[in-house]
Simulated assay, not measured.
Amino acid sequence: MDVRAYTMIGALVVIWLLFSLMNETFLTPRNLSNLFLQMSGTAVLAIGMVLVIVAGQIDLSVGSLVGLTGGVAAILNVWYDWNTVPVVIVTIALGAVVGLIQGWWIAYRAVPAFIVTLGGMLVYRGILLMVSGSKTIAPLSPAFRKIGQAYMGTGTGLLLAVIALLITVFVIFRKRASRIQYGFEVSSVEISIAKSVGYGVLILGFTFVMNQYQGIPVPFVTVILMAIIFTFISKNTVFGRQVYAIGGNAEASSLSGINIKRRLLLVFVLCNTLAAVSGIIFTARLNAATVTAGNMLELDAIAACVIGGTSLVGGAGTIPGAIIGALVMASLDNGMSIMNLDSYWQYIVKGLILVMAVWVDIYTRQKKKVS
């Protein structure tokens, strides 16, 4: 994570402290559990959006796609009595196909992503109205609801925490050994140990707090899993490095032999596949599919990315930063709801924070150019 991401962690802590002073229930295990449950769908969506924005593109259709894929999942589960596994497979495949279609128009027909996805936003919302008959589809099967409502048991959560901690320590020291091998400057062993201890406190502390209520929410486990996979893709694969290169300088990337069209196509396939995953999570959590599901969610995903340090001009951004951004947005929603503030304040505050985040990005880039 870059400096901006760490700054947002500090901002998140300040937000939590302010809301806890205003309402003592904010930092209770129950509310924090609900907070992580609520932010999971947006976080998954933001993970896919990071790759799109890093590549210098935009996707305005993901909110409507969340509604459509969630609606299709509910229709298959409720009206046609499909089991959970085939419903999930078909729904995720639908998201991938939509990404393939949109990516083809953008990459191979040179239609601006803004136009293609804006059209997709309208088309998918219309298809949802058509296939659902403008009806709310509920209730879902108990097995399907677990995707969005279940919690990991205390023992399972603790086991996952220990595994996560061991992997984190391994990655920290493996990265250090790799830098030593290639002759790069490295920090002292003491600093690496301090980092490991710090991450250990966070991981085990989080698990302890979640276990005080019902355990770690299953949707949040999905977020962590997606974050690990896509962080690896973005940082440790040729595809990931090429996506960053394309966003940084498309012309230079083309001259260096990168197949830009194919990379952009795959970026939209991945983004829309994650939109389908998000649609499943939202539908399962609400135990219903509605015609308004996912409305304006694309803006929350974009805001989460920008707040977490993703640059709208492309070439810079991280998955952990986007998750922090999603947590900031969810914390604001949750805290203001607990305080019984009118809903319009939520829009105003989130809008102002988004503008400030973009301004910080522009200011930082200008400062780098001057120096």
Score class of each variant (00 low, 15 high):
residue 329 M to C: 07
residue 239 F to G: 04
residue 13 V to S: 02
residue 346 Q to A: 06
residue 82 W to T: 02
residue 63 G to N: 06
residue 183 G to D: 10
residue 15 I to Q: 04
residue 3 V to L: 12
residue 231 T to I: 03
residue 180 I to P: 00
residue 5 A to C: 15
residue 83 N to Y: 10
residue 24 E to D: 12
residue 159 L to H: 01
residue 66 V to W: 02
residue 278 S to E: 01
residue 238 V to D: 08
residue 48 G to Y: 02
residue 332 L to N: 09
residue 312 L to E: 12
residue 246 I to H: 01
residue 137 I to D: 00
residue 146 K to H: 01
residue 296 M to Q: 12
residue 212 Q to D: 08
residue 126 G to V: 14
residue 70 G to S: 08
residue 366 Q to H: 15
residue 256 S to F: 07
residue 276 A to R: 00
residue 201 V to K: 08
residue 265 L to G: 05
residue 192 S to K: 09
residue 164 A to Q: 08
residue 31 N to C: 05
residue 222 T to V: 15
residue 25 T to F: 11
residue 134 S to H: 04
residue 170 F to I: 04
residue 46 A to V: 03
residue 142 P to T: 13
residue 167 I to S: 02
residue 51 L to T: 06
residue 208 F to D: 07
residue 293 A to W: 04
residue 325 G to C: 05
residue 158 L to C: 02
residue 242 Q to F: 00
residue 15 I to K: 05
residue 64 S to E: 12
residue 116 V to N: 00
residue 203 I to M: 13
residue 117 T to Q: 04
residue 331 S to M: 06
residue 52 V to A: 11
residue 56 G to D: 09
residue 96 A to Q: 10
residue 29 P to Q: 13
residue 64 S to W: 13
residue 96 A to F: 14
residue 263 R to H: 14
residue 148 G to S: 03
residue 56 G to N: 12
residue 189 V to H: 14
residue 229 I to S: 05
residue 130 M to S: 13
residue 368 K to F: 13
residue 129 L to K: 10
residue 153 G to R: 10
residue 274 L to T: 03
residue 176 R to I: 05
residue 12 L to H: 00
residue 244 Y to G: 09
residue 88 V to F: 05
residue 269 V to E: 04
residue 271 C to G: 01
residue 202 L to S: 14
residue 4 R to Y: 10
residue 334 N to F: 06
residue 117 T to C: 06
residue 43 A to T: 08
residue 211 N to Q: 11
residue 230 F to K: 07
residue 236 N to I: 00
residue 35 L to V: 08
residue 99 G to T: 13
residue 370 V to M: 15
residue 124 Y to I: 07
residue 283 T to Q: 08
residue 75 I to D: 13
residue 159 L to E: 04
residue 3 V to Q: 13
residue 11 A to T: 06
residue 191 I to C: 01
residue 40 S to H: 05
residue 254 S to I: 00
